Amino acid sequence: MKNATVGRVSARLRSWFPDREFFMRSEGQVRFIKISARTQMIAAGAVAAFVLIWALTMAAMAISGYLSQRDRLSLLDREAKVTTAESRVNAYRGDLGRQVGDMNRRQDFIEKTVQAHMGDLPKDAQAGETVSDSASEAAATIKKVSLAVPEAAELAGIEARQLAFIEGLTRIADRRSAAAEAKLASLGISSAIALAALDDKDAQGGPLILMATAADGSIDPRFQRFGLSLARMDALERSVAGLPQVLPANLEYISSGFGFRANPFTGGGGEFHPGLDFKGPYGAPIYAAAPGTVSFVGVRSGYGNCVEIDHGNGLVTRYAHMSRFRAVQGSRVGAGDVIGLIGSTGRSTGPHLHFEVRINDRPVNPRPFLEAAPDVLQEARGAHAAQSAR
């Protein structure tokens, strides 16, 4: 089969390239040139090989040109993308600058508003204070950031302002707490009673609204400390606000003080008087000395018609010898609200208000509480001096 195929191909080629004879006449002479089939096939093969080599060369050149053009276009495309990205970075840097400016202006607004209502925030640390001071750390951070990421230097500056601001707020909260604690101590009230409410988790609730200072939900310890200082300040100042600070009656004068006195009915012997007696006309109004909840309205032995107000933290005020009640048990009253009228019920020699301050059901002298409020007893002293001069 193979030999037959080769024979057919050979025969076909011979039919294409038969032996050829050429006659050439020159100067009267005739020459015969014979070109055999073999020679013709060799020549044809050489021409075919040349054409093939030329075609391959041209194809290679075309492919190379195409690849070069493609690489060039790709490079141009990458350069265009780099240029676009760089322009966007510049745009973001411009936006960052505007944002930094806005943030600085907002911080200025916050600081000036707080300053207008609270005064200058303390920057100096006092003995015994435990508030952090980030000034030196912040300065070092700004320096490092300026070298590593220059465009973020202003952001580091804003962070430093925020930390200094929150530390100043923490200091002022701690100092207000200390002032409230000192006032309570001067009246014999332990601040531990007021602060116990911070640990009492009974009767509390509401929606869960988390607070955080970082994207991961955490709170910077300095901000957390500020929150705790505010809670402490609020508890102590609420205790101070609950102290008797309003004269419970428009008095003529204090007719009997706290402590030892002679028996007002016999004039002899001695007895302990657990409050202050404010002389006044029958039916004159009696005022709540501090905000609180009315815890008792009724009659007590020796006191007659009596109203008691619970101010929290074990502090109670008692108002006795009333002619009429103007308060309802369980209601909230504010300082200065009318809760009754002066009378002479119970053990009494005439119309007056008997006023007591009790801490954990123990009577204490009401005078220091009233004197803790600015000028509250000046009227009483003036009235007493005028009565003595008559």
Rank of each mutant, 00 (worst) to 15 (best):
A85W: 13
T57V: 02
G343S: 10
F296N: 02
D216G: 07
A11W: 07
R70I: 04
P374W: 05
V6T: 11
G269Q: 00
D375Y: 11
Q378Y: 01
A44G: 06
P264E: 05
A160E: 06
Q69P: 00
D337H: 00
G269A: 00
L75Y: 03
A140C: 13
R93V: 11
D234H: 06
P374L: 10
K143F: 14
L195N: 02
G382W: 06
G119W: 05
L56W: 07
T130H: 02
D77F: 06
D71N: 12
A194M: 14
S87P: 01
M1P: 15
A373I: 03
L52W: 13
V376P: 00
P285Q: 07
F109D: 15
P281L: 09
N250G: 09
G292M: 07
T5P: 01
N3L: 14
G298T: 10
R300M: 14
Y282G: 14
D174M: 03
T293V: 10
L315I: 13
L198F: 07
L341W: 06
A196V: 12
A194Q: 06
A116K: 09
Y282M: 14
M41W: 03
V145M: 14
G350Y: 13
E308C: 05
L230H: 03
V297Y: 13
A125P: 00
A164N: 07
G168Y: 04
Y303T: 01
P366Q: 02
R20W: 13
L243G: 01
A372I: 02
A373M: 08
K279Q: 09
L52I: 11
T266F: 11
K183S: 12
R106V: 10
S74V: 07
I53F: 11
A43M: 10
P291S: 03
L67R: 08
I35Q: 08
A215D: 03
V51D: 00
V100W: 08
R88H: 15
L169G: 00
E271W: 02
I189M: 15
D337Y: 02
A203E: 10
G302L: 09
A214K: 11
L187F: 14
L13C: 02
H384Q: 08
D200P: 11
A55T: 09
S256Q: 08
L243W: 03
F17W: 03
A49Y: 06
S239N: 07
M233E: 08
N305Q: 14
I110P: 01
R332T: 08
T130I: 07
R261V: 01
E379Y: 12
Q126M: 05
P368Y: 03
F265D: 02
E137W: 08
Q204F: 10
I309R: 00
V149T: 14
M211Y: 04
L184D: 04
G119P: 04
R105I: 14
A49Q: 04
G343Y: 08
A320L: 12
G312L: 07
G242M: 00
R20I: 11
V89W: 08
V149L: 13
T170A: 06
M41S: 05
A203C: 08
R8Q: 15
P248Y: 01
A185V: 15
P122M: 08
G346N: 08
R238S: 12
